[in-house]
Amino acid sequence: MPFIRKIFLILVLSFFVSIAIAYVYDFDEDVFLIDSLWRKVKTLPKEKRPKVVLVLGGGGARGISHIGVFRVLYEEQIPIDLVVGTSVGSIAGAFYCAGLPIENFENIAKNIHWKDISNFSYPSLISMFLNENLLSNEKLGKFVSKNIGEINFAQLKVPLICVATDLNTGERILLREGSVGFAVRASAAIPGIFKPVEYRQRYLVDGGLVENIPVNVAKIFNADIIIVVSVAADITKNNIDNVFATLMQAIYIQGKTLDQENLDMSDIVIYPDVGEISAFDFRNAYKTIDKGFIAAKRSLKNIKMTIINKITENVLLE
């Protein structure tokens, strides 16, 4: 290769190399700016920032992953102005809104058994089918009260709304006053397994029947930002080899379309990777919490960015 041609080639190459060198160190501008702004945003008073509503979906034991989400929200100081929960979302919401330390919450979840919150067991299930006598989740109300105290909604540190269903009319019932333990019990009374909970001449069952992911409720209460935690089952991976599993699958399929409509209305959806975990399997609480934590961490940038974008003031120059 002649010497002059080599010089020309290197001149061209060095131009491109200099551009490449500039990008050797990867730098996420959004993350840096969010970090810089967040120091101020988290200290803003309520009236200067958007109203953030956390919507906690139902999903039985998969809902343990809500705790992992709480840890991230707590550690990153994400402001939550209202929590709306259905079924296990109500249970987790009650613990969170009562201000129970996350460590305690995690310990409770890691040691929880069906016998702590109901008289559910395989023999009792068989007896239920034979005698047509539904099981009771009365223990759930007591379990909640034992851990957060016998408190009313007004005593919660963060406002909470529990969603239940009127078994007679199919109406969505919002529980936001009176005993927290009682409301949680009504919101998580799985129809066909647990006895409905009597409340003001109504028979209430699990809110998941009408709104498993109650985004509509968050809208009613003027949410500026809706963060959803969806712990729905991955219906394609469910085992449908018995009557009970087939019934559950039918409920999941019916709820899926409704869930999707609600998810479309939200601003941010956190999806813990728990689709394969059974709604009745409390054994993997440790892993389930981790899955919630990881999913929330992944959504963190989006959450902070959405909150910052909705603040009208110039936080950067404050």
């Binding site: 501008e29 700016l33 110039n314 120059l317």
Partner: peptide
């Protein structure tokens, strides 16, 4: 600005 977020913040600052 290469991202919408940074552009929005720059716009906010210009307005301010």
């Amino acid at each position: 600005a290469k991202t919408v977020f940074v552009k929005n913040q720059a716009q906010k600052m210009i307005d301010f």
